[in-house]
Simulated assay, not measured.
Amino acid sequence: MPSDLKTFIKGRGSNSNITGRFEKTESYLDDEFAYEATYENLIQTEVRYETAKSLITSNNSPDVPFKLSINPYRGCEHGCIYCFARPSHAYIDLSPGLDFETKLTAKINAPDVFERELRNVRYQCQPIALGINTDAYQPIEKSLKITQSLLQIAYEYRQPVSLITKSALILRDLPLLEKMVSENLVHVAISITTLDNDLKRKLEPRTASGHTRLNLVKALSERRIPTTVLAAPVIPFVNDHELESIVHQSAEAGAQSAHYIMLRLPHEVAPLFTDWLHTHLPDRAEHVLNRIKDMHAGQLYDSQFGKRMTGDGLYADLIRQRFNITIKKAGLSGKRLTELDCSRFRIPPKSGDQLSLI
């Protein structure tokens, strides 16, 4: 794209459809189409439907607080430029760039598959994280209601669930969440990246504002739904100065605990974020990238467990110290929320399970 076209696409995080790492060929837009593509009305969201064969996935990562997870959608219209899940679009022959936020996939049969897997005799109940790879409450959930159906099934089976979101749409399901919390079946984590609306519009264009997310924390806490706040991601010289403010205001809103995660740039996220920096913050782009490299032994990313989410070195230590001091002053816990109750899990009877006695 010519230098005079170095502008951002309104309402989108990425400026390009970067080639996925598995592609053998690359394609480019000519200058005329590139100019046209800067107009939002030519970058429409497309929703595809997938019939999933399985739903519950497992992981053995020692630095994440869950073993099982469910993702009802592929891709995410929120468009967060830093999203660590962007590279997953390369597995389905789509770009981790614009495709990730405009070509979405809904697992339309997810509720049926979820129920089938819960009824499997080999299933052993443990908490399930819902909406980890992409936000389960992204805009298309408003009409498709897949997440809502999954929560209804979870409650019917007394299956514990933890939710993470940055969307106000979660308030739609407050009555159901209140039922679940009465039996210690749900936790919620609200991700807050920035309280600066101008930065938010550039960094995560289709998300709720930071102050709206603080209101989510308040609404959830008032209903005694255990809520933690994730100050994530922390980005050097971009939003790191907001760490204390986010933590203190989260505490005032009623959060029980808080955590932070440093910026992660796996695979295609690194060039996408680099382009974003040079587009929106050209005056400090190299300064930001150099500080990120300082935390990862000269690289933009280190996938090593124990370091990938916190980084290493002097700057990482400084952020850790600032955070620990801040949560102590704010009266928040840096520990995980109390364990959810798996002892209530049950398989409810279904029509046809037992022959009639009449």
Score class of each variant (00 low, 15 high):
209 S>G: 10
146 I>Y: 09
285 A>R: 08
26 E>I: 15
145 K>M: 05
154 A>T: 03
171 L>Y: 00
268 E>K: 03
44 Q>H: 03
152 Q>T: 15
6 K>R: 15
143 S>V: 11
176 L>G: 04
238 V>Y: 02
261 I>G: 00
1 M>Q: 13
47 V>D: 03
53 K>F: 03
2 P>E: 08
159 Q>L: 09
76 C>N: 01
120 N>Y: 04
339 E>P: 00
1 M>G: 15
117 E>Q: 12
135 D>V: 12
279 T>M: 07
177 L>E: 06
321 Q>G: 00
323 F>H: 04
13 G>V: 13
84 F>D: 05
282 P>T: 05
1 M>C: 14
4 D>E: 06
170 I>M: 04
163 L>K: 04
14 S>V: 07
185 L>A: 03
261 I>F: 07
188 V>I: 10
205 P>I: 13
205 P>A: 11
22 F>Y: 15
191 S>C: 04
292 I>F: 01
158 R>L: 09
102 T>A: 01
204 E>C: 06
88 S>Q: 13
267 H>F: 13
183 E>Q: 10
71 N>E: 05
303 S>Q: 02
305 F>E: 08
244 E>T: 12
3 S>K: 11
17 N>R: 15
221 S>D: 08
308 R>E: 05
78 H>W: 09
216 L>T: 09
253 A>Q: 06
160 P>F: 08
19 T>E: 08
259 H>F: 15
202 K>W: 13
130 L>N: 03
340 L>H: 02
183 E>H: 10
328 K>A: 15
326 T>L: 00
196 D>E: 11
125 C>S: 14
303 S>N: 11
344 R>L: 15
37 A>K: 13
106 A>H: 03
84 F>H: 11
8 F>W: 14
151 L>W: 02
195 L>A: 03
66 F>C: 02
111 P>L: 03
182 S>T: 09
173 D>P: 01
87 P>K: 01
179 K>G: 04
147 T>H: 02
91 Y>F: 14
244 E>R: 07
347 I>G: 00
123 Y>S: 01
